[in-house]
Nucleic acid binder design. Structure first.
Lengths: 138, 138
DNA sequence: GTTCTTGCAAAATATTTGCAAGACG
DNA sequence: CGTCTTGCAAATATTTTGCAAGAAC
């Protein structure tokens, strides 16, 4: 499904910024930060526009946000696009890569009595295979 | 163990701000935001001082930070103080309460081949027992 | 008395909002 | 053409840094 289809299906106007974001994320197999996305877009867009585009796309669940420690924000395609709604994310402490582990479920622990569950967010931190094979000493 | 003991054990100077933060968190059974902690402290402290105190206490693992969606930051006592190192957190979507689920473990999913695990963060969102019993319609 | 911490001011950074111009459909 | 989106400017908010005064040990 093309960015065009995705946008029209959600009754959003097809603008260069939105299309660019979606296409960039489709190409990438990992989650990307605002800067990473920005640098891959053909045209320059104001930061305000990017903020608003991310917000709109997130509300439609076309993308989803991954926050690592309040420091790093990355985006990936959302569950409006065949992605599993809830999945863990992996964060590599060496290269800062963020990846959706979307073939896995999140195990929800038992909650205190009377508590109701609605959603879960799980971030696994570690070292990805690329970084591991380079044998850094840290 | 008193705030005094905790600080001296970690070779930190015993200052009113640090003691106040630790005592506030010992009294509270839940995680508290900067504002919530500030309002419970006897004296007024500059925001810079609070930032620096949180940072220092976090580095010594006397407290730990819980970040909900990049929007809300709360603090709770850390694993230098008998708390389990890794535990899930519960976030109530009605009252915004954050609580450590420190009698529970985090189930780590299987990672892609060659990936190394180091830490995990799990936030469960839902409705706490207090809010649930008030039968809001949302 | 030496070292670490605080408060203030200021810089740096991040995010939100209003509004006129322009693009989309 | 009516509505939504963009870019710019400006208002807010957040976080960091330098430095002199003060507190801890």
């Amino acid at each position: 499904m093309s960015a065009f289809d995705i946008l029209s299906r959600h009754k959003l106007k097809r603008t260069a910024c939105r299309e660019g974001i979606i296409n960039t994320l489709i190409d990438a197999s990992i989650a990307l930060s605002e800067d990473e996305i920005k640098s891959k877009l053909a045209a320059h867009f104001d930061r305000t526009t990017l903020y608003r585009s991310f917000k709109t796309l997130e509300e439609k669940r076309i993308i989803h946000k991954v926050v690592v420690d309040n420091l790093m924000i990355k985006y990936a395609l959302g569950d409006a696009l065949s992605k599993k709604a809830e999945h863990p994310h992996f964060y590599c402490k060496r290269c800062e890569m963020v990846q959706c582990l979307d073939s896995t479920d999140i195990e929800v622990p038992r909650l205190p009595h009377g508590y109701a569950f609605s959603e879960a967010e799980l971030i696994i931190k570690g070292v990805c295979v690329n970084c591991k094979s380079t044998h850094y000493n840290e």
